[in-house]
Simulated scan of single mutants.
Amino acid sequence: MRFTSCILLLQALLLANTAQAQSNNSTNNGTNALTQCQQSIVQQLTNIFENSVKYFPWDYCENIGDGRGYTCGIVGFTTGTHDALQVISAYAAQLNSSTPNPFGPYMSRLIQLNQSTIDGSTSGLDGFCNVWSTTARSDQLFRTVQVDMVNQLYYNPAMAYAARNGLQFELSKGQMYDAAIQHGTALSEADSLPSMIDRTTASFKSGPNSVPGGLSEVDWLTAFMNVRIETLQNPAYKPSQAGWSQSIYRVKSYQYALSQGSVHFNDSLTALDNDGNTVSIGCDLTLWNYVGPPLPIQTPKKGILIGVLIGVGVLVLLIVTFCIIKRRLVAEWVSELSYRSKRAISRMSR
């Protein structure tokens, strides 16, 4: 048992080190990154998409039924796609030797779940969300690790892809980042950011550096967002389809900003929220340290609520109609039975 535990711990640490190496490679390849103000604006917009609030939901943890296990933390790390395990492994590696790892009981199961590309099972993770939420609200180190892993796994790679494709607009870089958060950056996955970039570039029959070569960045960004919508509506990984097809607002928000000519921004950006309403987002350098209230209970959107009410009304109407018809049929049957009984008695009395 001790030997097995050591092997599992080594695997977890290798995952964390791999993430660090990916981050270093992204940085060393040369990233035309956003300023901290611009990054805070882009991050707040992604936070709205993810959880309908601008601040980081450090303690969030829930199974949203997208085939990726538990979704948790500031950008929706998941237990079935490696990144939640990488966050936990990096956190465990920085704990003092005298401090127990609160996620210790889950490590072997998390590693098992992450042997394949995607595994949506939550079996063996009872109480995991409670541990995540408690640790996130009580331990600054765990919150810091979440930010570090976002940069390593998503922000730096997204900026590297933007630089590699010659993208100069802050809006383009923001779209690369939000796509990295939702779709991931795995080269082997058809729904990932690099795969969507490849499909976009192929649609113009040009090389990977097509933008500097003369192709309009507006045209390329427009095409990329169309490719992303197609991916959200019809992903290769089908368990994501139900949820992803309802999240096209993430792209429409950027399409709106593009239509307003907001390709460059420094201190603020006007985009669309999840309900299609305009929202103004300003620079907030306190974003990475602010611990907000727990997320509010999500209520159904107005359109969904109306649909549910209509559905219930139709069901009630059908039940009432059935009962009325049934009552009439029973009454007719009783009447007919009574008539036949009377005739039978009449004949017997003759």
Rank of each mutant, 00 (worst) to 15 (best):
E62D: 15
F49K: 09
S98E: 15
G76S: 01
Q44Y: 06
Q43R: 10
T81S: 13
T99N: 08
A90T: 07
F49M: 12
Q94S: 12
I88S: 01
A92T: 15
N51P: 08
L85G: 04
N51H: 14
T71C: 00
G80K: 05
G76E: 02
V87Y: 04
I64L: 12
E62S: 14
L45M: 14
T71N: 03
G67R: 09
I48R: 13
F77Q: 00
Y91V: 13
A90K: 03
Y70Q: 04
Q86C: 11
L45F: 06
H82F: 05
Q86G: 10
G69Q: 05
N101W: 09
D66Q: 07
Y55N: 14
Y55C: 06
E62A: 12
Y70M: 02
N51I: 07
T99W: 00
Y91G: 01
A92W: 12
K54R: 14
Y91D: 00
I64R: 03
T78L: 02
T81R: 09
A84D: 05
S97C: 14
V42A: 11
S97V: 14
N96A: 13
P57Q: 09
F56K: 15
D59H: 11
Y60W: 05
A92N: 15
N101F: 11
G67Y: 09
C61F: 02
G73V: 00
R68H: 11
V42D: 01
T81N: 14
N51L: 05
F77I: 02
V75P: 06
T99M: 02
N47D: 14
G67E: 08
R68A: 13
S97N: 15
A90L: 08
G65D: 05
P57T: 14
T71K: 00
L45R: 13
S89L: 13
T81F: 06
A93Y: 02
N101E: 09
D83N: 10
H82Y: 13
Y91I: 04
N51E: 11
A84R: 02
S52E: 15
N47T: 10
E50I: 05
Y91S: 04
I48F: 09
D83S: 07
F77Y: 12
G69R: 04
